[in-house]
Amino acid sequence: GLPEGWEMRFTVDGIPYFVDHNRRTTTYIDPRTG
Rank of each mutant, 00 (worst) to 15 (best):
W6Q: 01
V19K: 04
W6G: 01
I29D: 10
G5K: 06
D30M: 00
I15A: 07
L2F: 08
Y17S: 01
V19A: 04
L2W: 07
W6N: 00
R24D: 14
P3M: 04
G1K: 14
G5F: 07
Y17H: 02
Y28H: 10
Y28E: 07
F18M: 00
Y28M: 12
R24Q: 15
I15R: 13
I29W: 11
I29N: 09
D13I: 06
H21M: 10
P16D: 01
R32Q: 02
R9T: 04
T25Q: 11
T26I: 15
D13R: 13
R23Y: 09
E7P: 01
I15E: 07
T33W: 12
R9M: 08
N22Y: 14
Y28F: 15
V12Q: 11
M8K: 05
G34S: 14
N22E: 11
D13T: 13
T27V: 07
R32K: 03
P16I: 10
I15Q: 09
G5P: 04
G1N: 12
F18S: 00
G34N: 13
P3Q: 04
Y17K: 02
R23M: 11
I15Y: 09
R32E: 04
E4N: 12
F10I: 09
Y17Q: 04
G34V: 13
G5V: 04
E4K: 13
E4A: 15
T33N: 12
F10L: 09
G34P: 13
I29A: 08
T27K: 03
G14E: 04
I15D: 07
G14I: 00
G1V: 14
R24L: 10
Y17N: 01
Y17A: 02
Y28R: 08
H21F: 10
G14T: 00
T25P: 02
P3G: 05
R24F: 11
D13Y: 12
L2A: 03
L2R: 02
R24N: 15
G5W: 06
R24S: 12
I29L: 11
M8Y: 03
W6M: 03
R32T: 04
P31H: 03
F18W: 14
R9H: 08
T11G: 10
M8N: 00
H21W: 13
R23F: 10
T25V: 15
I15W: 11
H21E: 07
R24I: 07
T11A: 06
D13S: 12
R9F: 11
G1I: 12
Y28P: 07
Y28K: 06
D20A: 05
F18I: 02
R32S: 05
E7N: 05
T25I: 15
T26N: 08
I29V: 10
R9Q: 05
T26H: 13
G5H: 08
I29H: 10
V19Q: 04
